[in-house]
């Protein structure tokens, strides 16, 4: 319902005394609407500039020479746009490989995590079992612990993964999942937030759905896969996008888990434009833009789910 239609009853109520009043109130309301619209546009413009300016600078710097970057005054428009910076940046390292690694890890994480998170969320929301509340509280505690705290224990777990990377059954003797795709994927496939999000979503489903499914002979798993999962598109899209951006932008975990150039992800590779004394800002910005393109495209295509994901949990339906 837009603002105009919201005000309709108010207008109607005021119109009773006579035509004159209707006219005056109508003009006043139109004026108010116009002022409101202008204010809204000004606010939008202001925030667009504030948010868009750093992005503009990033594009501008990516097209500048190092001399222009070093100039004492700020250069907004390079004299001659240096598109070659993009070529140089992409030649500065094995970027095809880095993109493949990031893409591969991200897609697998998103696919598996959506399935696991939704299934766990479903169990917490729809199945009554002993210790459900306690388990859920433990899960919520997981959300409160910063990842830096769990980083070392998680690393040890990955290093001691049984039967991997030369390890024996007890997880000793080798390097476990260090420098493997599995090591980059496994820690991200389940997460408290995803389970929480799905649980909240499934709580809103009526009990009748479960009862009907049971009468029709559906097991729990079938109820989940045949009924709940097809209805979960909004929550899965939101979670998928958040998971995608989170995994794509992850820096610290790939940094510590990989130890070869062939396993580097895009975010780790972005630090390669710095040496002991200098940062190649133009190439760094060019590479950053290229690496962010994936996220921009995803955002443009699925922006309503992005916002839904951000707002999830803030409203009670």
């Amino acid at each position: 319902m837009d603002r105009k239609s919201e005000r309709e009853p108010e207008r109607k109520a005021k119109s009773k005394p006579g035509r004159e009043v209707v006219k005056i109130t109508g003009i006043k309301a139109d004026r108010k609407d116009a002022v409101y619209k202008v204010m809204t546009w000004l606010m939008v413009l202001f925030f667009t500039v504030v948010i868009g300016f750093p992005f503009f600078i990033m594009v501008s710097v990516s097209l500048q020479t190092m001399q222009e970057i070093y100039l004492p005054e700020l250069v907004l428009f390079p004299a001659r746009p240096q598109f070659i910076n993009y070529v140089r940046a992409m030649k500065n390292g094995n970027w095809g490989r880095y993109f493949f690694n990031s893409g591969y890890v991200t897609l697998i994480v998103v696919a598996i995590s959506l399935f696991i998170n939704s299934m766990t969320g479903y169990a917490f929301a729809r199945i009554k079992f002993q210790g459900r509340k306690l388990l859920f509280i433990l899960l919520l505690i997981g959300m409160m612990i910063p990842p830096q705290v769990t980083m070392v224990p998680l690393f040890i777990m990955m290093k001691s993964f049984p039967l991997a990377g030369g390890n024996n059954l007890l997880g000793m003797g080798g390097r476990g999942l260090i420098n493997t795709y599995a090591g980059l994927i496994i820690p991200f496939i389940a997460g408290s937030f995803g389970v929480f999000l799905c649980r909240q979503f499934y709580l809103s489903f009526p009990d009748d759905i479960d009862n009907s499914a049971r009468i029709d002979g559906c097991s729990r798993f079938l109820t989940f896969t045949r009924i709940y999962l097809p209805l979960s598109r909004p929550v899965l899209a939101s979670l998928g996008i958040l998971k995608f951006t989170g995994t794509w932008n992850e820096y610290i975990w790939p940094l510590i888990m990989t130890n070869s150039d062939s396993m580097k992800t895009v975010q780790v590779a972005l630090t390669m434009f710095r040496d002991e004394a200098e940062i190649l800002w133009n190439q760094l910005m060019a590479a950053t833009i290229v690496s962010s393109l994936v996220i921009y495209i995803l955002f443009v295509c699925l922006q309503k789910y992005f916002i839904a994901g951000i707002l999830s949990g803030s409203m009670k339906e």
Binding site: G165, R175, N179, T180, A182, M263
Partner: peptide, 16 residues
């Protein structure tokens, strides 16, 4: 899972 892990790790990891 085990075969996936062993496969994926053995091809990349080199022991000491």
């Amino acid at each position: 899972l085990a075969s996936l892990v062993v496969f994926s790790s053995c091809s990349i990891i080199s022991g000491s």
